[in-house]
């Protein structure tokens, strides 16, 4: 479903601030894979997701989604393959537009936008049902401005928007990191539910090792711009946090690995 072939990216090249964020990284996701991504700060997790979504172009290597080479496609064109939820709850929605208007915009991801009316009555009914499903009471506030919602409500809405039109690949970039623990759990539960129901191929970055172990069928760990650990299947199911820390030390050859990971 997703193929990253030897992608590299250096920010501020040829300056004193040069930073190699992705270093010859390769990764292949199979259809239906739900992969959790962990790693310390600056390991390149978000950079990898941004490279896939086209926020910037990679220096070398290629990116294939569903067999299509998207390496040179601009961000807005890649969007037709991707559903994205960001760490910042402000980033995924248009605050001064209504809840149903936001959903209607998401429903047209990848389609050409013409002079037809922006939202139909049938759509509103459909959105109402989907919002009921979230159990956040949003179905009765469809004409409220999204700016009035809490962070958790916005993330849940963004999740719905990212999956309203089934994406080839769902990218979750620490989408619960800015929420309080209770809300984070709820949003994670909703994520699991949506991913399972729609059988979505997913990449989820998390800073919480327990979450990384508890969710998905595959786990990858990143360090210094490449993947140092890739665990799936039965091995992943049996994983514990201390296992992970030990494996990380072994893979990266760093003693202080545990501190770095736990603190980030």
């Amino acid at each position: 479903m997703l193929e990253l072939k030897n992608i590299s990216k250096t920010f501020n090249p040829n300056t004193i601030n040069a930073k190699t964020a992705l270093d010859n990284l390769s990764l292949t996701l199979n259809d239906g894979d739900f992969v959790t991504v962990i790693g310390g700060n600056g390991a390149g997790k978000s950079t990898m997701l941004n490279a896939i979504s086209g926020t910037f172009y990679v220096d070398s290597g290629s990116i294939l989604i569903d067999g299509q080479d998207v390496t040179k496609l601009p961000e807005y064109k890649r969007a037709s393959y991707l559903g994205r939820v960001f760490q910042d709850p402000m980033m995924g929605t248009a605050p001064n537009m209504q809840i149903d208007e936001n959903l209607a915009i998401a429903a047209r991801r990848g389609a050409s936008r013409g002079l037809k009316w922006g939202i139909s009555k049938a759509e509103k009914k459909q959105y109402r049902k989907l919002l009921e499903h979230l159990e956040l009471g949003l179905e009765d506030r469809m004409s409220s401005k999204v700016g009035l919602l809490s962070g958790g409500q916005r993330q849940a809405l963004t999740l719905l928007m990212a999956t309203l039109k089934k994406p080839k690949l769902l990218l979750l970039d620490e989408h619960t990191a800015a929420l309080d623990p209770g809300t984070a759990m709820k949003v994670l539960k909703i994520s699991d539910q949506i991913i399972q129901e729609n059988h979505l191929t997913t990449l989820m970055i998390t800073h919480n090792m327990k979450d990384a172990i508890a969710h998905g069928n595959r786990l990858i760990m990143m360090d210094e711009g490449h993947i140092v650990l890739d665990i799936s299947g039965e091995e992943k199911k049996a994983l514990t946090v201390s296992d992970l820390l030990a494996k990380f030390s072994a893979a990266s050859g760093k003693e202080e690995a545990s501190d770095k990971l736990l603190l980030s």
Partner: peptide
């Protein structure tokens, strides 16, 4: 309108 409100969101939703 979405472009004016939030360009990140707009591009993520496939808006030029």
């Amino acid at each position: 309108r979405a472009t004016g409100a939030n360009q990140h969101m707009a591009r993520a939703q496939g808006i030029n």
